[in-house]
């Protein structure tokens, strides 16, 4: 009987010599056919987690099972079941795209007769058919990423790991990759474990999101659930006018605003009611915006820092260059 294509981890730990705990006891469960977004800044432990789940790095402690196979004791079974596109698309510049697919198919034991058709199918799917017989050293970064994804799919994996798959991609390639990942999960039932530092990517693509910081999962849930945890939307109006602020204050708690006045909406207040109230007072506003909470707000609420730039601080700290106050 085929095992379910789940991903499970219990108290998973990875320590490096003379280094911090890159992964510090995380628990995970990803359901079959789910897209799980693993969100965090650089150095948070995302890639280390992927390396352990894909059997490239043994855990220091804890257990993990992928598609029902233990990543330590049943590594060959795990590798036969998964596909992975890691952060650096390590390709051989002397091989063509098609030759890479041939190599990957051979390594995975795909029947010889099936290989050419499978290669063509994947090259077509990732838009590399025209470049298929060119050496990879002439590919752009985006083309390498797309080839990497095709390689991960050669043997029709039931679980797919994508480690920051859209880093460095142009918006068009990024959108195409999102479409393909969504299709894989919904039409083929592939379980996708996707790491990213892009809030939008996790928001748009993931069914559920885990937020990792300093090796620990600090929040987990659907994007909507996570955003609901940090509170209500805010409404911001410009210009900064005391009378406008008074009207807005009837609808929620005032919050700081750099350009105008803002409130965090309370109860069932909505934008329509605010517009009517402003109109009733005869107040003119230049701009009125409704801000829904973002995953960055979630990260801020859980860690006290904004996701954007958090990785830079950690990288600087790890190099012994933690920011010093100006003299």
């Amino acid at each position: 009987m085929e095992r379910p294509n789940t991903i499970e981890a219990e108290r998973l730990v990875r320590e490096f010599k003379k280094g911090p705990r890159a992964v510090d006891g995380i628990d995970l469960r990803v359901e079959p056919g789910e897209i799980y977004g693993f969100l965090g800044p650089n150095g948070a432990g995302k890639s280390t987690t992927v390396l352990m789940l894909t059997t490239l790095l043994p855990p220091t402690a804890g257990t993990a099972r992928v598609a029902g196979y233990d990543v330590v004791r049943e590594g060959p079974d795990v590798r036969a079941t998964i596909g992975a596109a890691l952060q650096e698309a390590a390709l051989d510049g002397l091989l063509t795209g098609r030759e890479h697919l041939r190599l990957q198919a051979t390594l995975q034991g795909l029947p010889r007769a099936e290989r050419p058709a499978r290669a063509d199918e994947l090259l077509e799917r990732v838009g590399l058919m025209e470049a298929a017989d060119r050496k990879v050293r002439g590919y752009s970064g985006g083309m390498k990423r797309r080839l990497d994804l095709a390689l991960a799919l050669v043997h029709r994996p039931r679980v797919l790991f994508l480690d920051e798959p859209t880093t460095g991609l142009d918006p068009q390639s990024r959108a195409a990759l999102w479409t393909e990942v969504g299709r894989l999960a919904r039409e083929e039932g592939v379980t996708v474990f996707l790491t990213t530092q892009y809030l939008e990517e996790a928001d748009v693509l993931a069914d559920r999101v885990g937020i990792i910081d300093h090796g620990r999962i600090v929040a987990e849930g659907t994007p909507a659930e996570l955003k609901a945890q940090v509170g209500r939307p805010t409404v911001e109006a410009m210009p900064a006018d005391e009378r406008i602020a008074d009207v807005l204050a009837r609808f929620g708690e005032p919050v700081p605003s750099a350009k105008g006045v803002a409130v965090r909406l309370a109860g069932d207040a909505d934008l329509t009611a605010i517009v009517r109230a402003l109109d009733a007072k005869g107040l003119l506003v230049d701009n009125l915006q409704l801000h829904q909470p973002t995953l960055d707000d979630v990260f801020l609420a859980k860690t006290g820092r904004s996701l954007e730039g958090a990785g830079d601080e950690e990288e600087a700290a790890s190099r012994g260059l933690a920011m010093q106050p100006a003299a």
């Binding site: 590798r79 650096e88 051989d92």
Partner: peptide
């Protein structure tokens, strides 16, 4: 070049 990592990842039997 990191290519061994690709082999380690793709090869069920290392």
């Amino acid at each position: 070049t990191g290519f061994v990592r690709r082999l380690l990842l793709a090869a069920p039997n290392r």
